[in-house]
């Protein structure tokens, strides 16, 4: 891909976003929707800039980020560990497989009331929900990546004198890295979504709570701000993960 094509792609991609903003502005300007229901985009972004300057809104962002990271980290650690174990040990595989088959399609959000009853209304229940939701994509792509590591890579390492128990960390883990990181990317997006939803359902702080408070008082402007914030957070975190990914996978083709 040359530079000219890349520029064209970026410009092309900006069209629908610009179009969306234009339609939004147009609808308001033409009086098709009252500003109380659909505030003009300029107002929303100004309100957002205003809020970002306040300590209290930043507190909400931090609360959300804390739960997001805690849940996501637990999911990464558990997902990679269980996925690798299931890929290398037939016994663990036989146990994990049916359980995952049952738990993966289960709508985790339905467990949320149970988590509330067991863990209380604080951080713990939300973090557990985020972890439970982000776990399966990471686990499954780790399992898939680890069980498709090329046999000859493992043999090459064994012939060079690597003892069997080190093969896991020296060959299988790095060999599965592309797939694992793809799983982490899906898991991260899910974490963003789930933490926000959990905060909307019951919470006293966080971005989801900001949205619910605004909805109760019919403040349309304040309802848009947390939504745009979570979208931006998602983009930024995804960008960071992408950077980590292209560093870790610099040797692999097609990153």
């Amino acid at each position: 891909m040359n530079g000219r094509d890349a520029t064209r792609d970026v410009l092309l991609g900006l069209i629908p976003i610009a179009l969306l903003l234009a339609i939004w502005q147009g609808t308001v300007s033409l009086g098709l929707a009252p500003p109380t229901l659909l505030p003009p985009p300029g107002l929303v972004f100004m309100r957002m800039a205003q809020l970002l300057a306040t300590a209290s809104f930043n507190q909400e962002i931090l609360a959300t980020l804390f739960r997001l990271f805690a849940g996501f980290s637990i999911a990464v650690v558990l997902g990679i560990a269980i996925g690798l174990a299931a890929a290398v040990s037939p016994a663990i595989n036989a146990a994990v497989r049916p359980v995952v088959r049952v738990l993966a399609p289960l709508p985790k959000v339905a467990l949320y009331p149970a988590l509330l009853l067991l863990l209380g209304f604080g951080h713990e229940s939300k973090i557990t929900l985020v972890a439970a939701d982000a776990l399966f994509p990471i686990l499954l792509s780790t399992y898939y990546g680890a069980s498709t590591v090329e046999q000859k890579l493992i043999w090459s390492a064994m012939a060079a004198g690597t003892p069997p128990r080190e093969i896991l960390f020296k060959v299988i883990l790095p060999g599965a890295a592309p797939s694992i990181l793809t799983g982490c990317r899906i898991g991260l997006v899910i974490s963003c979504i789930v933490v926000f939803l959990a905060e909307m359902i019951t919470s006293t702080d966080g971005l989801g709570h900001v949205l619910i408070t605004a909805a109760r008082t019919f403040q349309a402007v304040d309802m848009f701000v947390p939504l745009i914030t979570i979208s931006l957070l998602g983009l930024i975190l995804n960008g960071l993960l992408q950077a980590v990914r292209s560093y870790l996978l610099r040797g692999f083709p097609e990153v």
């Binding site: 090329e150 000859k152 890579l153 043999w155 090459s156 390492a157 012939a159 060079a160 060959v171 790095p174 060999g175 890295a177 996978l249 040797g251 692999f252 083709p253």
Partner: peptide
Amino acid sequence: RGPVFQEFALFPW
């Protein structure tokens, strides 16, 4: 005994 495979099997990382 050192193998050299047809598929090279180099560590991509």
